[in-house]
Each structure stands twice: as C-alpha cells, then as structure tokens.
C-alpha cells in the first residue's frame, strides 16, 4: 500500500476537519467582533469579554453549572464504581443479566423521556425543583456512563492481587482501597471527567428538573439565543472551549509523563 499523504487523503482530512472545526473557529472569531450584529464583522474588540464579566446572570449560570458538574460527577463516579464492582465481582448472582441490562438502559433511552420521568418523580415526591434536583438527575444519568468505563477496566484487573493483599493480612475492604483502586484509578478519573463533561453539556434534563435560581449555562445560552444571538454568548463559548481544550491537553501531557516514568 502507498504510504504518506495522497491527494485523496489530504482532501478527506480537510473536509472532515472542516466540518468539525469550521463552526467553532467562526464562533471564536466572532467573539472578538466589535459589531453587535453577529454576522457582520465590525473590527477586532474584546469588549464582549468585558461585558461578560459584568453579566451577573451569565456568571451565575456558569457558577451553578460547575457546582452541579462537580457534585454530580463525584456522586456518579462513586455509585458507578460500586455498580461496576458488583457486576464484575459478584459472579453469577440471581438477576445479574437484568441488573447489567438495567444499568445500560439509560445510555440508549431518549433524554427527553429521562428528563420527563425524573420531573414526574420529583413532583410526585413533592420536592421543590432547584439545584439539588438537577444534581441528582445528572448523577443518575451519568452514573451509567461511569459504570461502563470502570467496568471495562475492572474486568481486566487481576483479582489475585486482592487475594495477595488479603493473604498478607489486609482486610478485604482495605485491600480494595489499597490495591484495586490505585490500579483502576485512570478509569475512575476518566469516568469522572466523562460524567463532568456530560453534566456541563446537558440541556434537556436540566430544563426538566431545574427550578428558579438553578439555571445552568446551557439553559441560559439557549434562552438568550432564542432572543437573538448575543456576542457575549460567543465570548462565553470561546472561554468554555479554551477551558475544555486546556483540560484535555493537561490530561494528555500527564499521561505521557506517567508513561515515560513507567
């Protein structure tokens, strides 16, 4: 086979990456637009960034979103770890197939249905909707993703390591934290990141389960866009993209360093 970049390869790369990144590049460019009109270039300016930091509603939404993300991702990771341990370790217990099927069901269930059912639950329980209902809902949904990621790693983990720890005088629970957890840590971290990103990104479920004072960033952006795209939204989106990119690059560099040490 011919190696290197052929014309065809270059063309498909350009088209593919164009599809992926052209909208994002446009968004970043227009966030530095001096004009109020989104589609008309009026010169370079950073004034939307300045006004962004004076927009209390938007800042509030960012703060709420991050808090929800942090808490729900943590809950989801802990619960997902438990679920993964149960699935991998318990062997063939009664109802195992049902349990493993049920844990993956929310992955394929339409978000609208999930959101609606959660809303019905909160209403019938008489819970006032707000910060905690969104957090719990996000934890519920993202837990499945966390369980899948951790389960994959855990089933490749050699159980004899835990037996060896117990044999050397370590009680089973302690052995899990001293031996198993450090070895599946990369998967646990990945699961947390995934859950956090999913929570950050979610519009549908948050719309169903939030209440006054708990408007998340995607909800805020969506409602503002319906009134017309403001360049402030471009600015906040650019900041988000920058944050996510920094995060991804940091994780990559960290892993590279670990691999070199190893």
């Amino acid at each position: 086979m011919k190696r290197g970049l052929t014309t065809f390869n270059i063309a498909s790369l350009v088209i593919g990456f164009g599809f992926l990144y052209l909208p994002i590049v446009l968004l970043v460019i227009y966030s530095f637009n001096a004009s109020r009109l989104v589609t008309v270039w009026g010169g370079f300016s950073t004034k939307w960034y300045a006004s962004l930091f004076r927009n209390e509603q938007l800042l509030d939404a960012i703060w709420v979103t991050f808090r929800i993300g942090l808490i729900s991702a943590t809950i989801a990771t802990v619960l997902g770890t438990f679920a993964a341990v149960a699935l991998v370790r318990a062997g063939r217990f009664k109802g195992r197939t049902l349990f493993s099927g049920m844990i993956f069901a929310p992955l394929v269930m339409p978000e609208v249905i999930l959101g609606l059912s959660l809303l019905l639950l909160f209403v019938s329980l008489g819970l006032p909707r707000g910060f905690w209902t969104v957090t719990v809902s996000h934890a519920t949904v993202t837990m499945c993703y966390a369980a899948v990621v951790i389960q994959a790693r855990l089933s490749a983990f050699d159980r004899q390591l835990e037996e060896a720890a117990q044999d050397l005088g370590c009680p089973p629970i302690k052995a899990f934290f001293a031996i198993t957890l450090p070895n599946i840590a990369p998967a646990v971290a990945a699961a947390w990141m995934l859950a956090f990103t999913l929570s950050l990104d979610d519009l549908v479920i948050a719309s169903f389960t939030s209440g006054p004072g708990s408007t998340t960033l995607p909800m805020r952006i969506y409602s503002q866009v319906r009134l017309g795209v403001s360049p402030e939204i471009n600015a906040v989106s650019t900041l988000l993209i920058g944050l996510v990119a920094t995060g991804v690059i940091a994780v990559y560099l960290f892993q590279m360093r670990k691999r070199r040490e190893a």
């Binding site: 390591l161 060896a164 044999d167 009680p171 052995a175």
Partner: peptide
Amino acid sequence: KPPHQRPVNMMFQSYALFPH
C-alpha cells in the same frame, strides 16, 4: 477465619506483585 487473619502466606503462581 478469613485469609487476612491466617498466619500463613502464599506465593502465587502469577506472583501477583502489586504493579503500582
């Protein structure tokens, strides 16, 4: 008596060294 309370130690066939 669970394994961690027994005064015997085992050397596993796979060695089961803690990789971390």
